[in-house]
């Protein structure tokens, strides 16, 4: 199993932390991982993208140029999905902010209202965690089970109080697929 994922959104949507957490969880599940972030020159509000690969074997190029799955968190990133998704690949769309789907009839497109689900759980900032749950369910690449100890070793201690909410977001994301 090798899952190459390309993630895109705007700065502040937690794309970079989504990518980092995705590979962290995968690593804890015994997979090989690689994560390469791209930022815009701006400190806030620019483009945020991540090239993310998890695999049972040695990972070749760390750059995803032909993605098995693409995560699109905002409307501006839709052309990226059209370009980078492999033939017959998977595109996960944050339907809260994406009104027009990518023009890729060959691809399997799944719409998740990440912002709404996150707000319902308690904080729009965990929309990225909703998407992570959806990505795990849709790809089957990682299970994201028994997340609590994993997130405890990911987050610094002062953020541990937020872990239950993050787990709830992941679960809700899985169910939304």
């Amino acid at each position: 199993m090798t899952e190459k994922t390309y993630m895109a959104g705007f700065g502040g949507q937690g794309i970079i932390s989504l990518g980092e957490m995705w590979v962290f969880c995968a690593m804890k599940e015994g997979l090989q991982v690689t994560f390469f972030p791209f930022y815009g020159a701006e400190k806030r509000g620019g483009v945020a993208r991540a090239s993310v690969i998890v695999s049972e074997k040695e990972i070749a190029s760390p750059l995803v140029t032909r993605a098995d799955s693409v995560v699109i968190m905002n409307q501006d990133s839709v052309p990226i999905a059209e370009e980078v998704c492999r033939q017959g690949g998977l595109i996960l769309v944050n339907s809260s902010l994406v009104k027009k789907d990518p023009d890729r009839p060959d691809a399997r497109i799944i719409r998740i209202p990440c912002n709404e689900i996150a707000e319902r759980i308690g904080d729009v900032r965990i929309a990225n965690m909703v998407m992570m749950g959806a990505l795990s369910k849709a790809t089957g690449a990682i299970r994201l089970e028994n997340l609590e100890p994993v997130l405890k070793s990911f987050f610094p201690e002062k953020k541990h109080a937020l872990i239950p909410m993050n787990i709830a977001a992941v679960e809700a994301g899985k169910q939304a697929v």
Binding site: E20, V23, M27, Q32, V33, T34, F35, F36, P62, L63
Partner: peptide, 9 residues
């Protein structure tokens, strides 16, 4: 720069 900036286990 890629090896410097990317994260792996």
């Amino acid at each position: 720069g890629l090896i410097g900036q990317m994260m792996e286990g």
